[in-house]
């Protein structure tokens, strides 16, 4: 038998890393475009134009218009831009809290660890949305309320991951050996721990965004988030509830799709960054 019978795989046609980098670039571009879209679009579309009420999607109004004749594309992009910025702020705060507490729990151990783990468990045991609503309500709603509420409720999973990683790295042979080689705890934190945590942190942060955005939208949707005058995505969706049954599907569906796309973009971004950073998958 002269031919080869082996499980021969097709030669790789696409360079996987190129695809990964391309996905990252596209998602980043899309999200940056959303953030800055309000600058380009201007506020013109936000003004009521009663002559153009309830128009279905067309070339002049890609997303159609609402019952006041406002351009839905402009409103949706303004809303998403705000949502992404609010999400960014909330997710960053959340990541900082999570990393700080996670590192403290992992390195200090003992009672500190017990207390922090207890707090994490308490947060986990309460229903997410209820906690969000309560905090946001207590602060008095508005943008500040949303940011604080999201920041205070989303740090737990990252803190857990960072704590576990810290514990694991700290008990690893090479860190134990480093102590015996005479290295100080600070040096070890700087050279052994930190390089290990940064990728986790980056991915954790990116994957926090979609949660933050969705919860911001949810809070605004039920009326205790951003004020009804701001063009937030949650408010647009809440308004659209009235119109869906009357056949004006575009006022709800298209902004909803935009929200979905943005969230998916963050998710794809996070997964691809993770794949690139992790040595186990970066060769795949």
């Amino acid at each position: 038998m002269a031919t080869s019978f082996l499980p021969r795989r097709p030669a790789i046609r696409f360079n996987r890393r190129q695809i990964t980098l391309l996905s990252i670039a596209l998602c980043t571009l899309f999200l940056v475009a959303i953030v800055f879209s309000n600058r380009f679009m201007g506020d013109a579309g936000l003004d009521p134009a009663l002559t153009q009420r309830n128009q279905p999607p067309s070339l002049t109004h890609l997303f159609g218009t609402d019952w006041l004749g406002r351009d839905m594309l402009t409103r949706s992009l303004h809303g998403m831009s705000l949502s992404v910025r609010v999400g960014l702020l909330a997710a960053s705060f959340s990541a900082i809290i999570g990393t700080g507490l996670g590192l403290m729990a992992g390195t200090l151990g003992g009672k500190v660890d017990a207390v922090i783990t207890w707090i994490i468990d308490v947060f986990f045991s309460l229903p997410h949305l209820v906690l969000l609503i309560m905090i946001s309500f207590a602060i008095g709603g508005g943008t500040k309320g949303v940011i604080i509420a999201v920041a205070l409720t989303h740090w737990t999973s990252l803190a857990r991951i960072i704590r576990a990683e810290t514990l694991q790295v700290n008990s690893s042979d090479y860190v134990q050996l480093s102590y015996k080689l005479g290295r100080s705890p600070f040096w070890i934190a700087r050279h052994h721990m930190l390089p290990h945590m940064i990728p986790q942190l980056l991915v954790g942060l990116i994957l926090l965004f979609p949660h933050a955005i969705l919860h911001e939208a949810a809070l605004s949707f039920i009326g205790i988030g951003l004020s009804p005058h701001t063009p937030a995505i949650g408010i647009i969706l809440a308004e659209s509830m009235r119109n869906l049954s009357t056949g004006y599907w575009w006022v709800g569906v298209l902004p909803g799709l935009l929200l979905l796309l943005a969230v998916q973009a963050f998710d794809t971004l996070g997964e691809n960054v993770r794949a690139l950073i992790d040595p186990k998958t970066s060769q795949g």
Binding site: S172, D173, Y174
Partner: peptide, 9 residues
């Protein structure tokens, strides 16, 4: 196990 005794990064 030398693999565990060196920092993989």
């Amino acid at each position: 196990n030398p693999e565990l005794a060196v920092n993989p990064r």
